[in-house]
Design a protein around this nucleic acid. Structure first.
Lengths: 228, 228
DNA sequence: AACGCCGTGTAAAGATATGTAAAACACCCT
DNA sequence: AGGGTGTTTTACATATCTTTACACGGCGTT
């Protein structure tokens, strides 16, 4: 289950919330000041941070801002009820939600789950992980491809294009996007480069058991890598 | 810029908010009851719905629930300040956020932008679940069709159109909506493309046991995929 | 019932997009 | 310069979509 980082200077409250959240199945780590919060938050272990706005030393707003300069980790803010200004600043700084204090733990849990649900398959958080779809695995770091477990030779451009498709596996990607991100230039009229590359990637991948290609054409739009 | 659907029975308020939101650069459509809200929300045009909980007729909660059975479109709920129960139910039903009423427009905008920022590169917004109606199953993620358990060859556009119908199976879909979402262009006068495509899809599907087609014509409106 | 109007069904022609082999080009290396 | 590799352009075949044209059928009117 997900690991949460709970940040509040009120030890009493954090103990109570930790207990409640752990009963709900989360792993919880609590810290009590902004410095520790930023340090912990950036170590990559956590799925979400619950952050109190009002703390001695570094305020929650400040901590949020520092976290945001380095990461897109979801942050849920705890604010004094009715403190509109903090809420608005927090949201504009990129907080994912806020809960007014004193809060009902049940509401807090509902909101945590809502955020986790939304961010669970968000591709932006995992950028250098291998991309896996069906029998295809791409290692963006090493620029290496595995097809049915076997290494596959792709040219650099072919890899780029396949990576763009794989990051949005299961949904169509426009030729314009493929061109900007895969070829590094905008698509121009009568440009058939993408089509030609798709043709050769298809050729290298061969067909699926049902005879269809792994890369589907979406006429008038572009191409789509078929999902799991 | 993004299209928003604003749902509230208070005409005065919707006019005010519409004006404010449009100054902020959104396209806004306002409706004033739950039925219209669900119908509009599902037509695929909108990036987000702002939904009042308290409405005569179908309540916001009910509308949210109906929207959620068909789509993952982001929904932001407007609730009476301090009405914890509605907020919690809303969140558990899958609302993306709520704003207490009466609200500061600036806060509403901040929250709308926060949600859009989160969902913009979130693959979960497009529903990837297989679509099942009767003997027909569509796998949007694979762009594959099963008819009576057998794979069926559809062209790209035919698949798009059938997908649009299947997402609203059992209810009529206007030709305008079919054109925007299936063909990617607005319907023009004397445009018969949709009819021709329906004809060939029907041809590929053949007839049901009772001799009727799976796709019913709704004269003057469009077409409808018959439900379970 | 007979008529006309309008929307729909559909075959076939015309227009457009895609698949792909091969030529042309660009770049590196020796 | 010449060869090798990889990319883009060209050219043509094919697939797919749109338009056209006409037939049919519902529906309201006479």
């Amino acid at each position: 289950m997900s690991k949460l980082l709970l940040v509040d200077d009120d030890i009493e409250l954090t103990n109570m919330l930790t207990e409640y959240l752990e009963r709900e199945g989360f792993h919880v780590t609590a810290v009590h000041n902004g410095d520790a919060a930023v340090r912990e938050a950036l170590n990559g272990d956590y799925a979400l941070v619950v952050l109190d706005v009002m703390m001695p030393g570094m305020s929650g707003i400040e901590a949020l801002s520092r976290i945001r300069t380095h990461s897109k980790l979801p942050v849920l803010m705890l604010t004094a009820r009715g403190d509109d200004i903090d809420r608005i600043i927090g949201l504009e700084l990129g907080a994912d939600d806020y809960v007014p204090k004193p809060c009902m733990p049940r509401e807090l849990v509902a909101r945590i789950r809502a955020i986790l649900r939304r961010t669970s398959n968000d591709t932006t958080t995992t950028n250098h992980e291998p991309l896996q779809t069906g029998a295809l695995t791409l290692y963006p770091e090493k620029r290496q491809t595995l097809w049915h477990g076997q290494p596959l030779e792709l040219t650099s451009t072919e890899f780029n294009l396949l990576e763009v498709l794989a990051r949005q596996a299961g949904q169509p990607v426009s030729k314009a996007d493929l061109s900007t991100h895969g070829l590094g230039r905008p698509l121009t009229r009568y440009d058939r480069s993408i089509d030609v590359h798709m043709s050769s990637i298809r050729h290298k991948l061969g067909n699926l058991t049902d005879g269809r290609s792994c890369i589907q054409t979406v006429r008038g739009i572009g191409y789509q890598l078929i999902g799991e």
